[in-house]
Design a protein around this nucleic acid. Structure first.
Length: 758
DNA sequence: CTGGGGAAGGGGCCC
DNA sequence: TGGGCCCCTTCCCCA
């Protein structure tokens, strides 16, 4: 355990202001205070509580507290000061060794482990790593232990040798065995259920690296000898992590680090260097490991940084050829505007040799290295995905809740879909990733006019008008065609909402003219869009929004927004998640997505402690406690805390979104909006009415509807229960006022389905 | 078993 | 770059 003496030494070591600390510690009235404090910290680490930094070592992630790391090592201090995610060179520190080191930092105990175990880091490796990390106390401790066993020799050895340069036996120089445990599962099955083990008690802080108190590891190598205990941190991981969560499994998916700091995930190496540069020479020198001079140490690190990464140079095969011929990328790269910090989507590979491929991605991502990202990469991804998708992986992928099955390895859906994400392929760009499962959504479900993502579907006519499904060989021709839709919209006699091309930024909803795209907004579909902006693609809006997308009808106030929007049309989304490979058009979305991978939820509810990844969610959640339900159904008066639930509710009112017209069962259904606002031309025609007449009729109905609950029931299926509640029999209900049914409708269509459950 | 509501997760995208 | 809002979806509970 780190005890008072250690703290004193730390205080001196790092020159904390206030030399009075030693005095303070001497005068500590509760001798167990330091011990208790450290215990608490370690407990917190095991639970991931208040952990504010993630350390990536090869493909293992560790959670920890910046303060603790900073207090332990100047080097770590320099790393954590600006970044929430730290990458350690796995050539210098293996995951297993770092786990031991982290344990030491938090407990003051050094786990020697079983020197004969292939998975146990030994003291030599720890010494080397401690020296690299400038954990001077640990260095001294290791030396002491080695000397005790007669193994210590003053020479830089294995610890500074890349693992790749260490023989398969792990023995270097016949002495130091640096074990790099194969990444193993750390999530027993069923752990997601919420079982929360207690944190290690004081006496449980045993010097064993494989004990369950490594919960701070998000994904850490563990012993192959058995399933590892569940940890709350792991439980906090959403099932979408793309990681295997079952017991006795290996983590088959790549594990990446990410920077969730507010700033862009870049230039970490520069920061590191700068920190070193800032570090006074003397300050560095006096804590340099005896195994490596400060210059050597710093120089080596610097050399590694210069190499463009902390590691990739040792993995020459890990960086695929990076020819760039993607036009967007070329442009972006050449102009330096849009660096692609993220690697091509990695894909789990069964081949052990492939595993290393993941590593550079981590560093590249974190270091924000502009990464030529191109179609070849994409193809490679697809190849990997296609080839690497084993049944096991398939199972894993499909195990994930809703979202990440979008990877859809088994169906090659990722290959086709991930980069396009299904909806991308059909050009909607409005991701329905949660349900598309990597398959392209049916054309026309939602969409833009351009549909360049699945060219094979349309032969030479790559540009497809979603509403009418016509293909065009060029965007110009498509645009010309689209204009006809626009004219139809502008023309009062034209079909309403045929394209729903608007400037609101929301994708056109082609579910039908009376579909629910506006129901939630409580606005007439043809009065205005949700944003209250002109629906028409041309007109005054053009002056307000002069920056028009060349691929669709949207326009924006400023070029940056336009650029942002244009990415939605790109064949390749520029920001892939380095954990699951899902790609995003906006970096912020990707970062947000990453938070969900790591279970980072910065917004906590004061009332119940529940945590959220977004402020908005917390705000929404707080309404549960306050009882506030600001969203009210204009039809039935039901109130909701969440707007989205009101929208869902509205869909219920509108018979599942079928809208006005003849439902699938052939019976008349009245759309919610239509019940309040004038009937659309489409609906009117559908009903065999002139629009004016239909609107008049519906207006009458709306009056009833809004005025009388009975009338409301008259427009919507009335349950027997409700009828009885109203003191009506089903027979009586027939007398409720209803808009006349046009005789032009087929007889069956004229039957308003009042009684059947919707 | 089914449907509706509550609550929440996640992604898109404009600002 | 992040906030905010929208949308879709899922899960759970209950009637």
């Amino acid at each position: 355990m780190i005890m008072k003496g250690d703290l004193e030494r730390m205080a001196e070591e790092f020159g904390h202001p206030g030399g009075g600390l030693k005095t303070m510690l001497d005068a500590m009235e509760v001798p167990s205070h330091a011990r208790h404090l450290l215990l608490q910290l370690n407990t917190q680490r095991t639970k991931g509580f208040l952990c504010d930094v993630i350390i990536v070592v090869q493909n293992a992630l560790f959670r920890a507290h910046k303060n603790i790391l900073a207090a332990s090592s100047l080097y770590l201090k320099s790393l954590v000061v600006h970044d929430n995610l730290i990458n350690l060179d796995h050539e210098m520190v293996s995951p297993g060794v770092f786990r031991v080191i982290l344990d030491y930092i938090y407990t003051g105990r050094l786990s020697e482990g079983d020197p004969t175990s292939p998975t146990e880091p030994n003291i030599g490796a720890v010494l080397a790593a401690a020296s690299y990390l400038q954990l001077l106390d640990l260095v001294a401790l290791c030396k002491k232990k080695l000397k005790r066993t007669g193994k210590y020799h003053l020479r830089p050895t294995a610890g500074f040798l890349p693992y790749s340069k260490i023989g398969p036996s792990g023995v270097v120089g016949g002495r130091l065995r640096v074990s790099t445990p194969v990444i193993q599962p750390c999530f027993p099955s069923g752990v997601m259920g919420g079982h929360t083990p207690r944190g290690p008690q004081l006496d449980e802080l045993q010097p064993h690296p494989l004990l369950p108190h490594h919960a701070g590891e998000l994904f850490a190598p563990v012993s192959t000898q058995g399933p590892q205990p569940y940890t709350p941190t792991q439980a906090a991981l959403p099932p979408q992590t793309g990681l295997r969560l079952a017991s006795n499994d290996r983590i088959c998916s790549p594990i990446y680090g990410l920077d969730l700091s507010k700033k862009s995930p870049g230039s970490q190496s520069q920061q590191h260097l700068s920190h070193h540069d800032e570090e006074p020479e003397g300050e560095l020198s006096h804590r340099t490991s005896p195994m490596l001079s400060p210059r050597e140490s710093a120089g080596k690190m610097e050399a590694m940084h210069r190499a463009g990464s902390l590691t990739p140079h040792s993995f020459p095969l890990l960086n695929p050829p990076l020819a760039s011929h993607h036009p967007h990328l070329q442009r972006s790269n050449s102009q330096g505007q849009e660096p692609y910090p993220c690697p091509p989507s990695p894909e789990p590979s069964e081949e052990p040799g492939e595993r290393g491929r993941e590593v550079p991605s981590i560093y590249r991502w974190v270091k924000n290295e502009p990464m030529p990202y191109n179609v070849e990469d994409e193809d490679e991804d697809e190849d990997e995905e296609d080839s690497g998708g084993t049944a096991e992986q398939d199972k894993e992928v499909h195990h994930h809740k809703n979202g990440e099955e979008k990877l859809n390895l088994s169906e090659g859906g990722y290959g086709r879909g991930m980069n396009c994400d299904g909806e991308d392929e059909n050009g909607t760009g409005s991701e329905e990733t949660g349900s598309s499962e990597g398959r392209p959504s049916p054309p026309g479900a939602r969409g833009r006019y351009h549909m360049p993502y699945e060219p094979e579907s349309f032969g030479d006519n790559l540009y497809v008008c979603i509403p009418c499904d016509k293909g065009f060989p060029s965007s110009e021709q498509l645009n010309a065609h689209v204009e006809t839709h626009a004219e139809e919209e502008l023309n009062p006699g034209g079909e309403l909402d045929s394209s729903n091309s608007n400037s609101t930024g929301k994708p056109a909803n082609t579910n039908g003219p009376a579909s629910l795209n506006n129901t939630g907004s409580l606005h007439s579909p043809f009065l205005e869009s949700k944003s209250g902006q002109n629906l028409h693609p041309m007109g005054i809006g053009e002056m307000i929004r002069p920056y028009r997308c060349s691929s669709c009808e949207k326009s924006y106030k400023d070029p940056a927004t336009l650029r942002q929007h244009e990415k939605t049309h790109w064949l390749t989304r520029p920001y892939p998640c380095s954990i699951c490979g899902k790609k995003f058009t906006q970096r912020g979305t990707m970062t947000r997505h990453m938070r969900s991978h790591l279970g980072l939820k910065p917004f906590a509810c004061d009332a119940c402690g529940m945590r959220f990844t977004r402020q908005y969610r917390l705000t929404e959640h707080m309404r549960i406690h306050s009882g506030e339900k600001p969203y009210e159904c204009q039809v039935c008066g039901g109130k909701f805390a969440q707007q989205r639930n009101l929208i869902s509710h509205m869909k219920m009112h509108s018979s599942g979104g079928a809208g006005t017209g003849i439902g699938a069962d052939g019976k008349l259904k009245i759309d919610f909006c239509e019940s309040i606002y004038p009937l659309s031309k489409y609906a009117a025609e559908h009903l065999g009415l002139k629009q004016e007449k239909a609107s008049e009729l519906l207006a009458q109905a709306s009056q009833h509807l809004l005025a009388d609950a009975k009338a409301i029931e008259s427009l919507y299926p009335l349950s027997k229960l409700t009828a009885e509640h109203l003191g009506l029999t089903h027979d009586k209900m027939d007398v409720l006022p209803l808009p006349p049914i046009p005789q032009s409708l087929p007889a069956e269509a004229r039957t308003i389905d009042r009684y059947s459950p919707s």
